[in-house]
């Protein structure tokens, strides 16, 4: 009974972590969508100096999303 409770608690923790990862990924995607629209607007307005920072920002978001997927693993409780 006690073991089942622990298993249930552990599973809940992992679910919460994936939920958090999901929320972070959604927020990063929204930010990248905004960056893409800003890049399109800057390019059409011929404000070329704004393009590089926007691309860098999008790249940083992408790297964060990759780190969330590949490196953020739940740590087992001792």
């Amino acid at each position: 009974m006690n073991g089942e409770n622990n298993k249930f608690k552990s599973s809940r923790g992992i679910t919460a972590i994936f939920q958090a990862k999901l929320v972070l990924m959604v927020m990063i995607n929204l930010a990248q969508l905004w960056i893409l629209s800003a890049a399109v607007e800057a390019a059409l307005a011929r404000h070329y100096k704004e393009l590089l920072p926007l691309v860098i920002a999008s790249g940083v978001c992408w790297l964060i999303s990759l780190s969330i997927i590949f490196w953020w693993k739940p740590v087992r409780r001792r």
């Binding site: 994936f18 990862k21 999901l22 990924m25 959604v26 990063i28 995607n29 990248q32 969508l33 960056i35 893409l36 890049a39 399109v40 390019a43 393009l51 590089l52 926007l54 691309v55 999008s58 790249g59 978001c61 992408w62 999303s65 990759l66 969330i68 997927i69």
Partner: peptide
């Protein structure tokens, strides 16, 4: 799986911004 889809979307958005720029 949905996180995986979002990661693919993130890649596409980055490539889109870089390509457009």
């Amino acid at each position: 799986e949905f996180c995986g889809f979002l990661a693919v979307t993130s890649t596409a958005l980055f490539l889109g911004a870089a390509g457009f720029a």
